[in-house]
């Protein structure tokens, strides 16, 4: 497969700290990849290496066939830094038009980029007075300009309200649909809400997972939680029959693996009137993320 971004066994350390350890990650045209990890897991370091700001200690990187930092590579990549800042004295329109000129983009792109991020009304105000969300959207407008082959977005949704966040993912999908490769970083899985094609998780500089979300869900093999609501009179009997743990006097909580789910539910329905209600919750995205980012587990590595 012809990836836009190819990193092979990239390593980087700062003094004694191992920031990245043999990270191999590819992003194909039109693919949306989320890079997850705690603060300090190495996400931003990887971005800075891809941008050519830092030299890796080992490994190789290619961006649309060029070396990172080369003019060709910089032309292909658009970047949105984690805490984006602009000269306070300039208006939003001037900022976007400045980057359009630096990238050699058409002037008509400026307005369409501002429209895409809903900043047209504020375009002629100085960006020193923008809120964090508006600054973030201005940063995104700047990144969308110039038909990038690769979008590098460092925690793009921090500071965005839920509606802006939804619009953001729509924009990302729109660009991916036109063949742009997207690599975005985030703190947790729950923020992504399954809007990416693949999830890569960095833990202390090591890539511990790199697979579609559904594969991660399967390979994590986390228990399903079943909460059984009974009555004060019957809860003891239910608990004795099903096991699990009692909570708040009337409920029993059980955990079971995916293959045993139906058998467990059958056992519950056999209890008849003793059970008032049953709630089944699959493992949350946060739990899956915690599973990969905290445990020593390389289950998803092979993908």
């Amino acid at each position: 497969m012809n990836s836009v971004l190819q990193t092979h066994a990239v390593s980087k350390h700062f003094r004694k700290v191992e920031a990245l350890n043999a990270v191999s990650l590819n992003v194909a045209p039109g693919e949306r990849v989320a890079l997850l990890g705690h603060n300090g897991a190495g996400k931003t370091t990887l971005f800075r290496i891809v941008l050519g700001f830092l030299k890796p200690d080992g490994g190789s990187i290619s961006i649309a066939g060029s070396k990172p930092g080369s003019k060709q590579a910089r032309r292909s990549v658009s970047y949105l830094p984690e805490s984006v800042a602009f000269p306070k004295m300039l208006t939003g329109r001037e900022v976007v038009s400045y980057y359009a000129k630096l990238k050699g983009a058409r002037h008509s792109d400026v307005l369409s980029a501002l429209e895409k991020v809903d900043l047209v009304d504020a375009a002629d105000r100085r960006c020193g007075g923008y809120s964090k969300g508006m600054r973030q959207r201005l940063g995104l407008a700047q990144a969308l300009i110039g038909d990038p082959k690769l979008l590098l977005l460092d925690e793009p949704t921090s500071g965005l309200d839920p509606i802006s966040r939804q619009k953001f993912y729509q924009l990302v999908s729109e660009f991916a649909g036109r063949g742009t490769a997207v690599l975005l970083s985030s703190h947790g899985l729950s923020e992504l809400e399954a809007r990416t094609d693949r999830v890569a998780i960095l833990r202390k500089g090591v890539l511990v997972a790199n697979a579609p979300l559904s594969d991660l869900q399967a390979s994590a093999n986390l228990p399903i939680r079943i909460s059984v609501r009974s009555t004060q009179a019957n809860v003891d009997r239910v608990h004795r029959q099903l096991g699990g743990s009692r909570i708040n006097g009337v409920s029993v909580e059980l955990e079971c693996r995916q293959p045993h789910k139906m058998a467990q539910l059958a056992a519950i329905s056999k209890l008849g009137a003793a059970v008032n209600d049953v709630e089944v919750s699959p493992p949350s995205l946060d739990e899956i993320y915690r599973h990969f980012s905290n445990h020593h587990d390389h289950a998803g590595d092979a993908k």
Partner: peptide, 14 residues
């Protein structure tokens, strides 16, 4: 310091 140079240096300008 203010973080405004990053984006300029990431663009295709030398």
């Amino acid at each position: 310091d203010r973080g405004t140079l990053q984006l300029t240096l990431a663009s295709p300008v030398s």
